Every structure is written in structure tokens, then in C-alpha cells.
Amino acid sequence: MRILVITPWYPTIASPIAGVFVQRDTELISSSHEVELVHLVDPALLRTADLEADATSTFPVHRVPMSRSRPGDLLSAWRRIRTLSPGFDLVHTHAFQSLLPFQGHRMAKPWVHSEHWSGIGDPTSLTDRGRLVLRLTGRLLRRPDVVTAVSSHLLTQVQRFRTGPTMIVPSVVREAMPVPIVRDASVLRLVAVGHLVKGKDPMLAVRTVQELRRRGVPTTLDWVGEGPLRSQIEDLTAGDDGITLHGSLDADGVSAALSSADVFLLPTRGETLCLSAIEAISHGRPVVLGAFGGQSDYVTEQNGRLVAPRTPEAYADALLDVSEHLDQMDPEAVAATIRERFSESAVLRGYEAAFEQAMSMHRKGAR
């Protein structure tokens, strides 16, 4: 089958980790189908080097500049999609913003949409303008034949906008090689992977470390990720050698950071799935996360704790609970709790089921 993938999230030279999960999923789909990808890219992120790099991609990539603040860009994007789509059997869009060019236009091909956007999962996280735009455009989720969501939490939110077929298809998480935790009885080593933004709440992570130390538990924190709160965190942790901001790291750097820690901590305010936590579990490291979001699908007593109260005391309690049970949390057993759910074979089966349902609806003339 020939599939045209359309996404606003995809890696660029300027933003190399943006949409990496879409890239992984598309590479997976391309192992069984003929795929081309349309990246509806923010013009500010597009570089000539991106076009050069695309020449080595395993599937053709079309970079289409699209700024949501310029209505003309939406029309240009639609024209490009309309030109390309006749050569394909099915259209597969990713993330809500990819639906915007379709407004007011008919898509005659079988259509699967995969939702990842946190704005759907938690509209309260949006600005007033963002919530207004979502109220006006949310009905676009009715248009595709089938909509997949990466978690049950997100699926419930998607179903507020549509009554048509929906299903859960998570993102691929590449299998890691869990290594034993080399315990140092003198310190609790924490690691976090995420942007330094309000939604991940790095300030609460720092206050949690301070609370643990106040209780007499020497604790370190290595934070992998960059963001606008960096200067505030640096001010809060000035002179603290036990809290390290590593900035952005490549996949090997992230893997090394996870493997060097005892526990993964992310006091997130909400997630559609939280791939960084899944990657931590795949490395055999238990996680302590905020309770709101898709992480409730896979965090269990065997691999972590979910924390509802947004206080350093509550997070410190959870971390101490996990720390006391680390000897019973064999890294291989921790990793096994999520291995099949996020494996390439399971994700591909999910996508194949969505594709077949969309194709079947068209064969039966359901549209």
C-alpha cells in the first residue's frame, strides 16, 4: 500500500528532537508499505541543510513551509497535499495541526489520523486564544475515517470531538539493554529527561531534591533537556554541585544518563504518553511521575509510582517508597512490564488495523 504521511512535527537541523516519535513510527510503517512524508514545517526552522539531509532518508520527505499565523500558508499546504495525494492509497496525518489545511476541503482517500497533541489531552494547558481556536476547529477530528490516540487518556479527550471509529496506538519505544543498578548507599541518584518548561515542572523537581536532603537523604539530580526555565533553575541551584543541567543530549547520551541513575523523576503536570518515562522503564529504571495523563496506562507498582499532590513532600514520599523497594525491582523485570506494549510489532499491528478499517470503510462506500 502507498501511504502519504502528513505531520507538523518532524526533526529538522534547528530542532533535531521535534517529532522524533513520528519519524520512528513512519520508519516502522515504511518497512511494510511504500511511504512518503509531508512535513508542514515552521518556516523559521527550515534550513537548506534539511533538504540535503532528506536526500538520505529511507523514504521521500517533502518540506512544505506552513505558519499557522498565515492563512495563505494553509492554502498552499492544501494545494501541495491535493497534488500529491492522488498517487497514494491512504493518507495518514499526525497531530492536530496537520488537520488545519484540510478545513473546507474534501479528502477523497481513506484517511487515518494519529493524535499526540497535549492541547487535546489537557485543554486547560492552552492559552485563552488556544482554547478558543480548539473550540472552533476541534470538529476537524470528525473528518478522518479512523483516529488513533497514543493513550487511553488522550483517546477519551478525542472522543469528545468525534463519534467515528477510534483506537489506541502508542508510539514505538526502541528496546534498551537494561543494566543492573549499582547502588551507592550514600546517595539517591535521580534523572529527569524533558524540556525545562512549566509543564514538566523542573522547579518542583529541584524542591523535591531539597526536601529529600532536608530529611537526611543525600540526593543528586541530572536533568537532560533544554528550555526557557533554565536561567531560573540555575539561579535556584547556584552552588549546588548535586544538581546538573546537561542540556540536550543525543540518544546515546540520554541512554547513558538513564542507566547511571537509580530512579527517573518527572513531576509533569500532564502528559499524553510521556515517552521519556517509557524509555526510562525500558532501561530498567523505575519512574516517579505526575499522575495526570496517559502514563496511567503503563505505570504500575512493578515499575514506578504516580503522584497526584503537587508538593515536594508528596514526591519525596514516593521516591523514598521506590528507593526502599529497589532491591526487589530487577531492571530486566522493570523493562519487561512495558516491552510488548511499545514494541515495533505491537505498534505496527495497531496501525495496520487502523489502515484496514479506513480502507474497508471506503470499499463499502461509507463516506
Rank of each mutant, 00 (worst) to 15 (best):
S15Y: 07
V20G: 01
V20Y: 01
R24L: 11
D25M: 00
S32V: 09
L40E: 06
D42L: 03
E52S: 05
A55C: 08
T56Y: 08
S57H: 14
T58A: 11
P60V: 12
R63C: 02
P65A: 08
R68Q: 10
S76K: 14
W78C: 14
I81H: 08
T83R: 15
G87P: 00
V91Y: 04
V91N: 00
T93I: 14
T93P: 08
Q97N: 09
S98R: 07
G104M: 04
M107R: 06
W111P: 07
G119M: 00
G121D: 04
S125A: 14
S125I: 01
D128G: 13
R129D: 12
V150E: 05
R160H: 14
V187E: 15
L190H: 10
D201Y: 03
P202Q: 04
M203I: 10
Q210F: 11
G225W: 09
R230C: 08
S231Q: 14
T237V: 15
T244W: 03
A251G: 04
S260D: 15
S260I: 05
S260K: 13
D262E: 15
P267L: 12
P267S: 13
T268H: 03
R269E: 07
L275C: 02
S276Q: 11
S282G: 09
G290R: 04
G294C: 11
Q295T: 11
S296F: 00
N303H: 01
L306I: 04
T311P: 07
D317K: 11
D317A: 13
H325I: 00
E332T: 15
V334E: 11
V347P: 07
A353M: 12
F355G: 05
E356Y: 00
